[in-house]
């Protein structure tokens, strides 16, 4: 029983972090209909920001407030100068924007390697391996904090999208771009802001992950993959769906690791992904309509 409960807790805590990685992706995919294959690389960059700030004595949780605006600006620049110009260009493949994000991801990774080399960097904090116990079940303090922050960000995003004018414009663009344009929404500006927001959110995930994990230039790829799995599970553009998708993926990986074997961790994630694509297109969002 302890094994089961501990696995459950581990999966849910990890899922919280995954959710935060997924929210940014789901926004971008929902609004622009493109997969951002540089998503994990943006997170990697935020982790390096956290690392550099840490060497100057800034706590990872404080660096949230620096990394998020920085990555917001980077996201805005990427959308404005690299992705939006592609919308006007006539090409054979509509996927040019996706391929562009591949190029951006490569550049980000290699720039990081250039500046920081391939060495592993890590942040040591007083609380990174602190734990507390409920019964026999251990909770990692850092992951629990990450979980709580992830939940509050999601709640904030939910409120923002539902209650503010900007949020409503974003949702309108996601639902029907042409109609939104007709209603007077400046969709070009909306896509720029959305990409910035998505980048800032994944930056937050990076700051929270940095103390419990480590940092190297190639870490982006696997997290990009996790982000799109979460997005497909949750449904495009759905923040609540991202939480569901993140926790589902976290749980599936943990349960898979305990009951099948850890080497099947990634296979479990990919299998769920393909099953959802085939049998529940639209993801969790289709069931709940949120």
């Amino acid at each position: 029983m302890d094994v089961f409960l501990q696995t459950l807790v581990a999966g849910i805590l990890k899922g919280g972090l995954y959710a935060l990685i997924g929210i940014g992706m789901t926004l971008i995919m929902g609004v622009m209909g493109i997969i951002n294959l540089a998503h994990g690389q943006l997170m990697m960059l935020a982790m390096y920001v956290t690392f550099v700030l840490n060497t100057m004595g800034v706590d990872p949780y404080v660096s949230l407030f620096i990394a998020m605006p920085l990555l917001f600006m980077l996201g805005v620049a990427i959308q404005k100068f690299l992705l939006n110009p592609l919308m006007k260009v006539e090409t054979i493949l509509p996927e040019n924007q996706v391929l562009m994000t591949v190029g951006i991801g490569m550049v980000l990774t290699e720039v990081a390697r250039f500046v920081f080399s391939s060495d592993y960097k890590y942040i040591t904090t007083g609380y990174a391996d602190r734990t507390f116990y409920i019964g026999n079940i251990s909770f990692s303090v850092a992951l629990t904090i990450a979980f709580v922050i992830a939940l509050s960000f999601t709640a904030a995003m939910f409120w923002f999208l539902l209650k503010t004018d900007l949020g409503r414009s974003i949702r309108a663009t996601a639902q029907d771009k042409d109609a939104a344009t007709l209603m007077g929404v400046n969709t070009g500006r909306i896509t720029v802001i959305t990409f910035g927001l998505g980048s800032a959110l994944v930056a937050a995930a990076g700051c929270l992950l940095a103390p419990v994990y480590y940092i190297f230039p190639d870490l982006g790829g696997p997290f990009t993959a996790k982000a799109f799995i979460i997005t497909i599970l949750g449904g495009l553009g759905s923040t609540v769906g991202a939480i569901f998708g993140g926790v589902t993926l976290g749980l599936a990986e943990s349960m898979g690791a305990t009951y099948f074997g850890m080497e099947y961790e990634d296979i479990v994630g990919l299998t769920i992904f393909i099953l959802v694509l085939l049998f529940l297109p639209g993801g969790f969002k289709r069931l709940t309509k949120v």
Binding site: Y213, S254, E263
Partner: peptide, 12 residues
Amino acid sequence: EGYQAGAIDFTP
């Protein structure tokens, strides 16, 4: 148990 190098969480 084998695992993929680079895992985040070995708790399970």
